[in-house]
Design a protein around this nucleic acid. Structure first.
Lengths: 233, 233
DNA sequence: AATATATTCAAGCAATCTATTGAATATACA
DNA sequence: TGTATATTCAATAGATTGCTTGAATATATT
């Protein structure tokens, strides 16, 4: 292969990889990807959760689709979008870790907006796994119900944070409680821990969320809450 | 935290993560990152290897620096750029894997330009590791000397592909030879295997390159060729 | 067939990005 | 101090991106 051909090849190759980079180069698209990491969504749902217009959301989804990061399946009136594969999830997590470790602005933002976070040390996936094996913990998924149904940590009970105050009686008084949600920057679990702690429960949050757990190939379940299983892995 | 504050936080947070995406959204920058994955470089060297102008290269480097993907250290006349950490390397590999698996154009490009590749199955890092332990293989680093010196697989001998034909006598006739280079899209190892095979040596290439080996936390060395060590891990 | 709903498409404008050019800066060396 | 070299900076033009608006399309329901 001569030098000119080699250059042509490299130009085209890196241009292709840059297609993925371009998809990741917009904050709104990253937010959409994070939502899709919880499970499939329609355009309307994504638009609502990201506070974007429908048309704008749709256009971002086209961009993601053209670089094959998401796939879409038409179901009746709705277009159901989801991540193309776990590789995409892995990539998003990789990107986020890079940001956390290398961008001081990210650290500053967390300190500013999640100041309550500092008080209470979250537990890690490893810790949770151990506690689950010992059956020493009550695991609570505080995300919206649909996300729980699309996939959750094996043995978790679903109580969306919006319903928590009215469903306290479902939570055992004596056991340690671990709440988890979408991920480290989601405040659902923080809110849950705050509610539970103020009422005398022993509660902590998981530092990560369901997507991180999933990519570590730890045990997951899908579908309705069994309302029985707990602490099993 | 009320809804408006939550939105503000998310907007700013994802804007930050998108800074990294933006850095990865340009093919030239990805090529620069791949070169830096082999070891530190000056602006001039990068400009030469990427066929960009000096000023343009410098500007791309500023972009990478502002998102903290690379760092620079002034050494006399030269500015020495390198990757900020192994996290960056990990990220680039993650991006590449995503492209390989999800972009059909990437597969098409490889088939078109690297058609010679199809004939010969490369070996994996795992295979190489096993063979090294058995001391059953002669490991050849065919990258330019400076890259070898900046870091290489433990036990490898350095013979840049440009010097290979004149240094054949340094290569044992009877042992199996494994050649490696910058990575899966680098053709140095292909060229080396082609030269060696045509002269009756038993030679294959490593499917990956030095950066991939490094991120798997396998054994590496830096500095000059010991010209003695071989097959040790 | 007519209507309602979800999504996509198309056009347009402002903002951003990329490569080029030439000048400015910084360091080494005579 | 003056000169050469490596790098960065500043200004510019052309291309691309992001959001809005309003229309078009596709499916389900009446």
């Amino acid at each position: 292969m001569n030098a000119a051909t080699k250059r042509e090849f490299k130009d085209q190759l890196f241009e292709q990889f840059a297609r993925i980079g371009k998809s990741l180069s917009n904050g709104r698209r990253l937010e959409i990807l994070e939502l899709l990491a919880q499970g499939p969504r329609t355009v309307e749902e994504l638009a609502r959760d990201t506070a974007l217009s429908i048309a704008n959301t749709s256009q971002h989804l086209q961009v993601l689709r053209r670089s094959n990061l998401v796939t879409v399946k038409r179901e009746g009136l709705y277009a159901n979008y989801k991540l193309a594969s776990d590789d995409v999830l892995q990539m998003c997590i990789s990107l986020r870790r890079l940001g956390e470790r290398h961008l001081s602005d990210v650290q500053r933002l967390v300190e500013t907006y999640l100041c309550s976070r500092a008080k209470l040390e979250p537990i890690s996936c490893q810790d949770l796994l151990r506690k689950l094996k010992e059956k020493s913990v009550f695991l609570l998924d505080v995300r919206p119900r649909e996300e729980y149904e699309a996939g959750h940590i094996a043995g978790a009970r679903s109580i969306p944070v919006s319903e928590l105050k009215t469903r306290l009686k479902e939570i055992p008084r004596k056991r340690e409680i671990v709440a988890y949600c979408r991920g480290p920057y989601c405040v659902f679990a923080d809110e849950a821990v705050s509610i539970l702690s103020s009422r005398g429960y022993r509660a902590v949050r998981l530092g990560e969320g369901f997507p991180e757990w999933k990519t570590q190939r730890l045990s997951i379940e899908t579908g309705l809450d069994s309302q029985l299983s707990c602490g099993k892995v």
